[in-house]
Design a protein around this nucleic acid. Structure first.
Lengths: 213, 213
DNA sequence: TTGCTTATTGGTCGCACACTCAATAGCATC
DNA sequence: GATGCTATTGAGTGTGCGACCAATAAGCAA
C-alpha cells in the first residue's frame, strides 16, 4: 500500500547519469539558488537516493561549480552565439541588451550574484566564476572588435570596453532581488547607454526610446 | 582545574547588551559574512551563552538585518558625512572615489554583495537593504545637487546620476571575491570616470592619473 | 540461461544550526 | 543586610546537512 514509491532501479551509463545530475543541479541553481544544491534535493528531483549523487560527486562543491558553469555557458551561448560570424555586431548587441536587461534575465542575474558571493567560501566555485568571466569577456570583446573592424564601432581597447559593459550589467544585476527603485527604465537603459558611449555610437542606438508620442 | 572558563555572570542593561550584540554581529558580518552570524558565533565572541542572543533576538534574521544596517550606516557616515555642508562637493567626491575603489573598501564591497544575495531568502534583510540603498542614493544625490547649485557639476537628474554611479560601484564590488582580471586600475577608474561623465566634468577629475613619467 | 561487473541502494554517523524554557544568580532598591 | 526583579544560564529538542560503506540488483556478455 504505502510502497507505491520506490519503483524499480534504473541503471544508466555513468556519462548519462552524470549529465542528468548536472542538468538537474543547474536547474536548481537557476531557480532556487546554488545553496539549494544539496545531495537530498538533487536526489529527490531525479527520484534517486542521495548516496548516488555522492557517488558521482564525492564533494558537493564540485557539483555546485559544475552546475554554475553549465548554466552560465548555456546562457552565454544563447546570448552571443559563437556560430554566427556573419551577423552584424550592431544587431548582435542590440539583441544582447534587449535580453540582458529584461526580466527574463532575472534568474541569470541572481545566479551570477549568487556565484560571486558564494565564491567567498568555495574555492572550486571561484575558479569556475573566473573561467566564465573570461569566457563572457572574450565573447563580448570579440563582437566589439568585429564591429570596430567593420567600421560600426569605435573603441581603443575592445577588452576594456567589454569589461566596462559587463560591470554595468553586473551592477544592475545586483538589484535582481531588491528591485531598482523609482528609476527602473532609466537605470536599466544605463547598460545600453554605457555601450553606446564606449563604442562611440549615438545615444539611443541600443535602447529604442519608448517615449510617449 | 578545567573550569577556568565560565567566570562570573556579568549582568548588563538590556540597551547596553543589545548594542554590544549588534556591534559584534556587525563586525562578524564585515569580516566573515552575514551567514556567519549564528547564535553560537556571536555568543562566543561576547563570552556569553547562545541562549542570551536568542533572548534579545528571538529570530536570528532580525539580528542579521540589524548587523547589516549598522555596518552600512557607519560606512556611509564615514564616506559622506552629513555634518559637512560647507565642504566642497568636488572634494567630497574625490575622497569618496579614492576610498570606495581602494582595497580598504573590499570588506564593504563583500558585505553589500553578501546582503544583496541573501536578500533573496531573507525578507527582513531585504527591507534593510532597500532602506540602505535609499540612504546611500539620497546622500550621494544631495552632494551632486549641492555641486550643481554651486556650479561645480552639471546634471539634469541628480538622483539618476547618483544611481548610475552607485550601480558602477556595485558592479565593481561584485569582483571583490574574484579579482578584476588584467585591467584592475582601468576598471577601477571606471567608477570615477562614470561620475565625471554624469556630472559633466573633464576626464581625470576624480581619478588622478598615476601614469609613468 | 548463467555469471559478473558495477550502478545503485539503505542505513548510519557526526556536526552545526535555530529555537524553547525552567532554573539560577546579579544587582539595584529598600 | 534582606528582597525582588530580571538578565543570564544550562540543558534539551528537532532539523538538515555532507560524508561513508557494505549490501543489493540491473543489465550486459558469455
Amino acid at each position: 500500500m504505502t510502497s507505491s514509491v520506490q519503483r524499480k532501479r534504473i541503471r544508466k551509463s555513468p556519462d548519462d547519469r552524470r549529465a542528468e545530475i548536472v542538468g538537474a543541479a543547474a536547474t536548481v541553481a537557476l531557480t532556487e539558488g546554488l545553496e539549494c544544491i544539496t545531495l537530498r534535493r538533487i536526489a529527490d528531483q531525479l527520484a534517486v537516493r542521495p548516496g548516488l549523487i555522492s557517488h558521482y560527486f564525492p564533494a558537493v562543491e564540485d557539483l555546485v561549480a559544475e552546475a554554475f558553469g553549465s548554466a552560465a555557458t548555456a546562457e552565454l551561448e544563447s546570448l552571443l552565439p559563437v556560430g554566427a560570424p556573419d551577423a552584424s555586431p550592431l544587431d548582435l548587441l542590440t539583441d544582447f541588451f534587449a535580453r540582458t536587461t529584461g526580466p527574463a534575465y532575472d534568474d541569470m542575474s541572481r545566479l551570477w550574484l549568487n556565484a560571486r558571493h558564494l565564491s567567498r567560501y568555495r574555492p572550486v566555485l571561484r575558479e569556475r566564476v573566473l573561467t566564465q568571466e573570461h569566457l563572457w569577456r572574450g565573447r563580448l570583446s570579440s563582437v566589439v572588435r568585429d564591429g570596430v573592424d567593420r567600421g560600426q564601432f569605435r573603441a581603443e581597447d575592445a577588452l576594456l570596453a567589454a569589461v566596462r559593459i559587463l560591470v554595468v550589467i553586473d551592477g544592475l544585476a545586483g538589484h535582481a532581488n531588491t528591485g531598482l527603485g523609482n528609476h527602473p527604465s532609466a537605470a536599466t537603459r544605463f547598460a545600453a547607454a554605457t555601450a553606446e558611449r564606449e563604442l562611440g555610437l549615438p545615444e539611443g542606438t541600443f535602447s529604442p526610446t519608448v517615449d510617449p508620442a
